[in-house]
Design a protein around this nucleic acid. Sequence first.
DNA 1: CGCTTCATAATGTCTATACATATTCAGGCG
DNA 2: CGCCTGAATATGTATAGACATTATGAAGCG
Lengths: 235, 235
Amino acid sequence: MKPIALHERIRAEIEAAILGGQLRPGDRIPKETELMAEYGCARMTVNKALSALAGNGMLERRKRAGSFVAQPRTQSMVLDVPDLAAAIAARGQSYRWDLTSRKISAPARAEAEALGVRAKVLSVTGVHFSEGLPLAFEERMINLALVPDIAEADLSQTPPGSWLIAHVPWTEAENRISATAAPVAVARALGIARGAPCLMLERRTWRGTDTVTRVRQHFVADRYELVARFGPGGN
Amino acid sequence: MKPIALHERIRAEIEAAILGGQLRPGDRIPKETELMAEYGCARMTVNKALSALAGNGMLERRKRAGSFVAQPRTQSMVLDVPDLAAAIAARGQSYRWDLTSRKISAPARAEAEALGVRAKVLSVTGVHFSEGLPLAFEERMINLALVPDIAEADLSQTPPGSWLIAHVPWTEAENRISATAAPVAVARALGIARGAPCLMLERRTWRGTDTVTRVRQHFVADRYELVARFGPGGN
DNA sequence: CGCTTCATAATGTCTATACATATTCAGGCG
DNA sequence: CGCCTGAATATGTATAGACATTATGAAGCG
């Protein structure tokens, strides 16, 4: 069938022992030479397995001391923050984007400070629809110095997030997730009551030290949730 | 200073080229033999660098075809879901936990189904305080078959999450993050208005196929946010 | 022209070896 | 007793070579 690589098998077995509780945090795992004998392979093979686990934060390795099961102090979860258009399409639902405003301007001094941008910015607002229902209200600023092309893009057809992901890929990013009461403008755009709960996602992405874009999305509470996973099945 | 490992340097340089936009998704990166010549090192060294990037989802490697910059389809962010007590303490704020109810029972048939648990469960509710203010209301179920010791733990002193992380480490987990209007019970416990927005975090953790615990935490909207990062600076 | 077959080029895995580096542990010395 | 020194040890990095695997693209065949 599928001959699994040996280093992967070793990795998986040790991971299983950790997740299964046979190995507990602080426990020492056999040294490389011992595992090497146990599996009858070279040290590099064992090393690859252990390095991978150490990379995941599951092992802590100290020279001369050995390899130890790490403390799961802060569960690092993998959160998928997909492009909305793609995510909704992937769920087999219909998607629509409504551009409600678009303007180019120099950011106000305070904003420029917060954005870390002195250049001109494109400001966009709009609404994401799923199955014909408003799902999220989006306010976005885009640094035109870094992404001049977007000034010519037709953002009434393509939501800016989708355009950016296709044209300015692999930026660094930070997301802040919180809950808020819908402000008037948001409530009106989403057709919900003022003050109704919203999941708010604020994202800032950069290239090097320059901010590329800054988004704030208000999701209608009942219609969206984020999922984060941790674990070997974490795929 | 600290001589950085060569494979790490190679990895970092390619990553920088991807994040800096010199290499775009779909672009092909030099084959191992070429990089090997460029850096004057062995193939295994290059391979280690590229394998690491492939593990991060930043490269896609195909035999015979070469290595390509991956599409950042779904931005996989690392979300730290820390233990609340530890997280608040780390921010230098005071923390308090109020146990409001605790009971052991067999879950109702419907619940048992949803939990994937037939055994007895310990049900706990309580409130997390930060700086004297209610921060989160927690409802939790714990599988006593997997964690019998917790029946004897003093959960009025230690919040169950902290107890579990110390006693049942390294489980698999799934988090669902959403926003809701505070139900009556939650609003009362948190001292907020009924229907006020809350950030809701539902977590389920398992060991193998068995559910260990299931939590629902309602956070007061203004007092908490989750942060997820992606990027090399993502530390 | 379309299909199959096959050599080839790339990555994937593994080995055996070597030396580097950091940490511990045991002595030795003041 | 405390501090320094040095040896032992486990991991960290790197090498050169070997063979496996697999998609590709071209050659050959019907």
